[in-house]
């Protein structure tokens, strides 16, 4: 059992669906009842925790509701308001930046570390553990740690840099460097992808490499024509799930803005969301601050719907591209 379970040798879902069209209606009913006996709690949960809130999110997006006085229908007003908000476009831009830069850097560095672990002969197991550990660090803890490490004044990173004559940037305190610094944090936690790539790389039949080498293929060619095609399904999967995880990017951005701005020091001081200058504001944060700080339920729900549409667009790509891995065995 390995990462490559999906994408290889699986029949398309539709073909199989046709294969077991039951001929005996009685048996089919019995099977349906038996399955229902196992999945009914999930069906109820699906209704309460998915369908209901999704429907109400859409409904709320057309209402004015301050969560105290009853909601009133306002048509498209919230939509017009949100699409005219600077903060909305800024956070959409930030989220897009993170999706493009953070996801690709994570995939590339995960693959790089995976290749390294596979090729290293001494201490591969130890390396794998070391590269994996940071991924496990709870996000709040890892973020506070990075805010400390990258503190422009007293942080160890800039201290070390200045020892070799480099003046380090202001990281989380500079609008131009805040997102790169968050990317650094994300790359530190790349262990999950690394492990997936290692498993998949080990799956490449060694004979293929040997044959290619005998044919005179150099290492780059072997990588290009054997490794990459073999990894393609895993790469696609890593990229798409990475995109969807990044669309939810929240905890690190919130924590770092509070710690770096120093505004959390004084209770009640207005939280400088997206500090510095909105450069770390993401769509999920905007949902939170609209819904739970400004209590503009309608506007929060507009942003939720936008987020939903984007996430589902990527999910549908995944479902189509990954039909193989989703396919059932029988």
């Amino acid at each position: 059992m390995s990462a490559t379970t999906f994408g290889r040798g699986a029949t398309p879902a539709t073909a199989r669906a046709a294969a077991w069209t039951p001929r005996q209606p009685g048996r089919r009913r019995r099977q349906n009842l038996a399955a229902l006996g196992l999945i009914w709690p999930w069906l109820i949960g699906f209704g309460i925790f998915f369908v209901y809130p999704l429907v109400s999110t859409v409904w709320f997006s057309f209402t004015h509701y301050d969560q105290i006085n009853p909601p009133t229908w306002v048509g498209l007003r919230n939509w017009r308001y949100v699409f005219g908000l600077h903060a909305f476009w800024q956070s959409l831009g930030n989220t897009a930046w993170l999706v493009v830069v953070m996801v690709s850097l994570r995939v590339v560095s995960g693959l790089g570390l995976g290749l390294l672990v596979v090729r290293v002969k001494r201490g591969a197991g130890l390396l794998r553990t070391v590269f994996y550990l940071p991924y496990l660090a709870p996000p709040v803890a890892a973020t506070i740690a990075f805010a400390f490490l990258l503190n422009p004044g007293t942080g160890p990173v800039n201290t070390l840099l200045s020892k070799v004559g480099i003046q380090g940037p202001d990281w989380f305190n500079d609008p131009a460097w805040a997102k790169p610094a968050l990317t650094l944090l994300a790359v530190w936690g790349v262990g999950d992808l690394m492990v997936i790539f290692v498993a998949s790389l080990l799956d490449v039949p060694a004979e293929q490499y040997e044959a290619a080498e005998l044919d005179g293929a150099g290492p780059l060619q072997r990588f290009r024509y054997i490794t990459i095609p073999h990894l393609r399904p895993v790469l696609t999967f890593a990229a798409i799930t990475g995109v969807i995880a990044t669309l939810q990017y929240y905890t690190q951005a919130v924590v770092v803005a509070q710690v770096a701005s120093g505004r959390a020091d004084q209770p009640g001081a207005p939280f400088d969301a997206g500090y510095p200058n909105g450069s770390t504001l993401t769509l999920p944060q905007l949902v939170y601050s609209m819904g739970f700080q400004h209590f503009e339920t309608g506007s929060a729900c507009v942003i939720s719907v936008v987020l939903f549409v984007i996430a589902m667009a990527f999910t549908s790509v995944l479902l189509r591209r990954g039909a193989g891995f989703i396919a059932a065995e029988d």
């Binding site: 879902a13 196992l38 925790f49 939810q248 939170y288 939720s304 996430a311 999910t315 479902l319 989703i326």
Partner: peptide, 28 residues
């Protein structure tokens, strides 16, 4: 198990898995 709507149910599971929690947080 074989039952009517199994593939649909699977799609729903995957959709739930991919759904950002912030999408439904306000009504929840």
């Amino acid at each position: 198990m074989r039952f009517t709507g199994r593939n649909a149910a699977l799609m729903l599971v995957i959709s739930m898995m991919m759904l950002p929690p912030q999408v439904v947080i306000v009504p929840m």
